[in-house]
Design a protein around this nucleic acid. Sequence first.
DNA 1: AATGAATGAGATTTCATTCAT
DNA 2: AATGAATGAAATCTCATTCAT
Lengths: 211, 211, 211, 211
Amino acid sequence: MKDLFIMVRIAKTPEERRNELIDAATVLFLEKGYDETAVSDIVKKINVAQGTFYYHFKSKSEILEAVVDRFISEIEKAMTEISDNREKSSAARFNDAVNFLIKIAESSKEVLDDVHQENNALMHDRIAKITMARLVPVLARIVHQGVESGEFNVHHPIESTDVILSALFWQFHQPGLMEDKQRLARIKITLEHLLDRMLGTADHTFVLNLK
Amino acid sequence: MKDLFIMVRIAKTPEERRNELIDAATVLFLEKGYDETAVSDIVKKINVAQGTFYYHFKSKSEILEAVVDRFISEIEKAMTEISDNREKSSAARFNDAVNFLIKIAESSKEVLDDVHQENNALMHDRIAKITMARLVPVLARIVHQGVESGEFNVHHPIESTDVILSALFWQFHQPGLMEDKQRLARIKITLEHLLDRMLGTADHTFVLNLK
Amino acid sequence: MKDLFIMVRIAKTPEERRNELIDAATVLFLEKGYDETAVSDIVKKINVAQGTFYYHFKSKSEILEAVVDRFISEIEKAMTEISDNREKSSAARFNDAVNFLIKIAESSKEVLDDVHQENNALMHDRIAKITMARLVPVLARIVHQGVESGEFNVHHPIESTDVILSALFWQFHQPGLMEDKQRLARIKITLEHLLDRMLGTADHTFVLNLK
Amino acid sequence: MKDLFIMVRIAKTPEERRNELIDAATVLFLEKGYDETAVSDIVKKINVAQGTFYYHFKSKSEILEAVVDRFISEIEKAMTEISDNREKSSAARFNDAVNFLIKIAESSKEVLDDVHQENNALMHDRIAKITMARLVPVLARIVHQGVESGEFNVHHPIESTDVILSALFWQFHQPGLMEDKQRLARIKITLEHLLDRMLGTADHTFVLNLK
DNA sequence: AATGAATGAGATTTCATTCAT
DNA sequence: AATGAATGAAATCTCATTCAT
């Protein structure tokens, strides 16, 4: 049967192919984790030959880089938009930012079942580290503005943002969190409260989209 | 060279051998990461045959379990001691607990160079998750007592402890943190300050051993 | 816990232990096949140490020998008894012999599920070959006597017996045979009929216990 | 020596390579038995890398399947040809068929020395079972036609064929049979005679090529 | 007679990467 | 740009057997 069909060779622009590969890899890395995903899985998913992969990427780890980069760029872009929205107060923008992160966390939870979540330590770790590195400055700017406008009361904006973001990351990284509604409710209240305290805002300034 | 000598057969009690193996594995997992460590590396390190490993552990992942378990048991034990020290105030005990975690983080940093730290995502992730799960209750008890004695002002002790611990974990997980002395100093001040705010204590209640 | 009990060392006569080991091995070889059975399985089954095995048997294959030998000796003994029963006609004794083989086949089918039956190729093969070698003379004697008494009409008693036995062996070796009642009924009639023809007896001389 | 040369990479069509591998495996399985043959033996025999094997077969057992399949297909094809030869009587065709089986048995005996024959229990068993399943219908058809044309006198063609074939298989499976010329002669006469009786033909209808 | 920890060879399998076409 | 067969190193795990006690 295989012999009856001539494998049609579709040449695309390098960028198109690269993106297809990154798309496939993203899904697989999320589903099965980086280590558990073979290069052969990636190429099979978009029906190209093994060699094609190595035409576009030097190695398997290079595509991880690309996946992570693209993922983060998207987040960063959205975050920057939120941060640049001059129509909202600093507190409102900070609130938006946090809720955006929550949305991201939720959508990736949908892809990852608990069993596979562990396999993702590597990718999650990378994404988290890089995201932190890139997001902290953006959010810190909001904080800084908030301090200047008198909305926030914070000593070290950058470091505080760093600490706040790490706390958020960890919380949303916990498996099963979104399912335990009672716990989620307590976490919501706690986080909102702690944000108020850490940023020196009045109670109930922040409202997280956790339900 | 190795080939010229027939290995001398030294029988030990299973417990001894098991511990030797766990010791070796711990070091290697920290140095090179779990995936990058082969069972053959472990046995070579203590000069036993490959089969010896499988006499004591059913699989490679079983020894990871053992490594993690032992690591955490030690931490838990120390933490419980700190927490049970009735001679100190809640704040002092909480302070001790945090400094103990810092000490652990520092000593594991010594083993892990930055290059290899990434390989450790899996083990770090496991340790972190389990440690959190086991440590949160212990620390939360301190917080709870502090609330009762009026030292702390916290709404949800467990959730707050969870958030605080996650923030700490993340901070100390950051590569190169301990080397950047300036940043470290700012982080120290920030964390101390945020702890005060989150726990509702007077400024400068907490003093972290970060230098 | 293990430390609290002192493993009681029970010394038995070599013959007792040997037999225990053969018993265990027989069951395991039937259940899982020779290759799939580890020496460690055998010793675990009767709670003795690995070394004990090698005190009684030089090698794993030696115990297979022993298992097969004992199995066959039992068959041979029963067969000889049947064959020596001077109160019955040759045809009746031959009939008894065949039915005895059927009984053996049935009882081993009970132990072996179809999945594992394939693993038993080796043991079955051995048993079959040796059984044939030892049983053919015994049965051939009955045939010979039957020829002399005029009951049978056979040219080469030994070779004929050999052929008849091989046919029987194969038939009963077939997986699932005993379950397919319809087929079994046809096989029964066919075998009875062919036996009559091969031995030159009147129709319905032989009645096989297949139901 | 081998280490000094880098293997030249020769790409062939999957079918070619697959067949090369099956060829090599067939010989080795016959010579040493399935268990005793390592995948590394197979690839060494045709000078390809270990990985090449797994590019073409999912597992070692898959190539056993392939070996057996090909073996049997060849037999089946030849048998069908014999069976379809309308120019010969049923008896003549049945005779041809039996002689063809004898030829197969003889040629495989050449490869298998007695010592290694035992290792082949698994493969022989498989081949025998499958061959029986596929050959019985073909031969039974001849028998059936013979009954209709009045050449044979048989009650249950299928079951009778089954019994006859099993007897033949076993006989030719016996080690050393072909070497013991005297015994072979007696077996020849006996089989010829029993075939006549079982199929209800006149004496000396069948002539087996055993010498 | 018995113990059981230790041995070590060897087997199957995976997979990132290469390269001739 | 793409193909896909081939590579080969490396890894985990099994198990018959040994041997000091």
